[in-house]
Design a protein around this nucleic acid. Sequence first.
RNA 1: GCCGCGGUGGCGGAACUGGUAUACGCACGUGACUCAAAAUCACGCGCCCGCGAGGGCUUGAGGGUUCGAAUCCCUCCCGCGGCACCA
Length: 842
Amino acid sequence: MERYDPAAIEPRWREWWEERHLHHTDLSDTARKCYALVMFSYPSGDRLHIGHWYSYVPADAWARMRRMQGWNVFEPVGFDAFGFPAENYAIKHNAHPADFTEKNMEYMRYQLRLMGAMYDWEREVVTCHPDYYKWTQWLFLELFKAGLAYRKNAPVNWCPKDESVLANEQVTPEGRCERCGTPVTKRDLTQWFFKITAYADRLLEGLDRIDWPEKTKALQRNWIGRSEGAEIRFEVEGHPGKEIEVFTTRPDTLFGATYLVLAPEHPLVDEITGAVHQYEVDEYRDRARRMTEIERTSTVKEKTGEFTGAHALHPLTGERVPIWIADYVLLSYGTGAIMGVPAHDQRDLDFANAFGLPVRRVIAQPGDPPDAEDGAVTLQVAEDEDGVLVNSGRFSGMPAAVARQEITHELERLGKGRAAVKTKMRDWLISRQRYWGAPIPIIHCPRCGEVPVPLEDLPVRLPYDVDFSLGEGGLSPLGRSESFRHVRCPRCGGHAERDLDTMDTFVDSSWYFLRYLSAHDDGRAFDPAVVNAWCPVDMYVGGVDHATMHLLYARFFIKALFDLGHVGFDEPFRSLRHQGQITRGGAKMSKRWGNVVAPEEYIPRHGTDALRLYLLFGFTFEQGGDWEDTGLHGAFRFLQRVWRMALQSATPPPTATPDGNRGEARRALERARHYAIAHATQDFERFQFNTAVSRIMELVNAAYQFAGGWSAAAGAAGGTADPADVRLFRSVVEDVIRLLAPATPHLAEELWHRLGNEGSILDAGWPVHDPALLAEDEVTVVIQVDGKLRDEMRVTRDLGEGEVRQRAVSHGRIPGLLGNRDVAQVVVVPNRLVNIVTRARG
RNA sequence: GCCGCGGUGGCGGAACUGGUAUACGCACGUGACUCAAAAUCACGCGCCCGCGAGGGCUUGAGGGUUCGAAUCCCUCCCGCGGCACCA
């Protein structure tokens, strides 16, 4: 029999598909549309490895199943070609990013084709091409005109060794530069921001409407970090009209505030600091400024601080409270000032204990002994749970939750505060002082200010011939190009300068899934009619590492475009799935460790299909795991088995005598077939590819067993076979091939044609199971209660003992056979009898 | 510290809504075929005791609910990921 030789058949089918434009989607047919999207790759110099395949292959398998089910599937692909990785690679290798990006994409296209995915290459999108970034720039201007893009001076991450600003995402969780490991400091620069904070509430609310992993939603909620509370104003003693505004989530503890703390950089510090304290305060502020992020935010650090000499007046009691500065208060959150409530906040307690400030309990638990008259207590552990107010004037006795409202109302009445909501999330800083990105389409005119580049002048092209090396202290490389820099103001015609920064690469990737749908439209970013018909994306597959970056930004972008009337939906991705990570030798794959699994190495011998099958079968999709060559061999062996089985069914022995003993065998195979179809389908839909494949393997095993019996029977009958056996075997083989088609498209296509079928297997339809057949094989089970025959029920023959037991008990309850007695014990004789032993209730 | 996810054979991993724990595969063992090997096919394979029939134990640990728990509840331990002085 001819051997299974993937190298001989796979390239042929890929050509066949391409010649027929089989994967080119007709976007005008939207009746059963299905938009299947994967996160596109960076052509940053590294080739695609098995980790990339691990997200692309399952996404493609899912899309293929959908296509076979009759959906009009759109599965595009492209490249996220701008960004730091490519630029850094270019600097290191003394190459131009525009040149080697093209070369890398060329190789990656070859790799992606090798995978045999259903990509619609005719709609490829490359973010660094002017016909793409022209529209990125247009979208920037739309946000600018809507007031959602603005410029302000802000502290940004700065790496002293690289003399360069860094994106937030290029700072490690330890606060170090991702590339050189140097601790990152802050630097003030004027930057462009997108007003993502204006969408905080809607970004939270939208999470309830989308089919995303709970983990990812939790990450976004956590990142947005919404807290409700109150802003409270304290008058500064001796400075009439000067007030310090603090933010707290616990206005109910207001009577326990025994001091205030300002962030060291707080603008009021200079104005209120007393002369006697000026030297120490300045000293402290200098120290705080010089500290790195790591030191500053270390939670193990002892509390430090400095008294300003000033006092504030408690808004409700008029009591004098000292004003301190301390670096545990951050200027960037809330109002940059807090009220210290040491009894009910651990950080405040640590601070109070370090500096001998009073601790006053204002929340008590029922049963607590009464405190001293003014609530003074000595604590090591703050009491931060809710309780009942004490030592709080007329609010004493109120539950904390009620007091939060009441005290806030009282402050509002007095004009001393109001309810407020704060988020941890900051506005999205999109300027980059780097070369390899989309230029920001703004012209700075000495007379007219920030002037948008007119649409007819877009794109603002990135000049090729620019020195983009680092080393000038964070000055934008585009500033070195005189011809780029100098420009006439579109408004007044006078001399003006272009904005010299480029956009964060995450701006490019916030809308690429819209451009796929209008990839060649020169007149607009996208066609709203097409986009509204095809979006939101039905299934989005990619790494969880983008949870609080790309996935948040894209959601913001779509909400903004919705508000501006450009799109008719406000969530971009209806369903989202994350792949796990494939490791090798227990370690993350990296060139440095030399443990990268390159698909090209395995394909000549085992084929793309075996590789695809192994990735689907060998791991739990969201979990990933360690690569093992033996697993790939196993997948390959299974495909050989399928191959032999299919060829055998294509050349059956002569049929003659019907064999009366084969009925039960056929029934069993028929049940196995419908069981496999039902479960494989459901598992594919749920991204449970490993179990989907195992169901198919079971069916193959059952078919083999069946064929074994048939061969023996044929032998006994003198070399002929029962025609019903031959027909059934053949049709089961066809179902196996169809079920395997999402996983192993080339093999499926080959076998499909060898069995004499025309056209692509993609159009062959997806097998459908017959629930009646699975349920038909029923037996009667007798139900006894305390040994007396009471009823009967019908169950399927293959039901397990436990299931029979459960059904008997619920069956007994529903007609009230058990009266008001409890079940004490259930004895089951499988498929025959169930005896329920009861006992008096209670 | 907080949030999320996880802990099941030698290994990857199954188990729907609480109902035969260990599906499917890998590795391993035995046998068939072969001069031999590979490949293939058949059978076995959680752990412990037992020649055997058989018995006992088992889903990180300990408790609880239930006729019945890998699954639900409580208290811990360990691993991974995220956030982290966010008031």
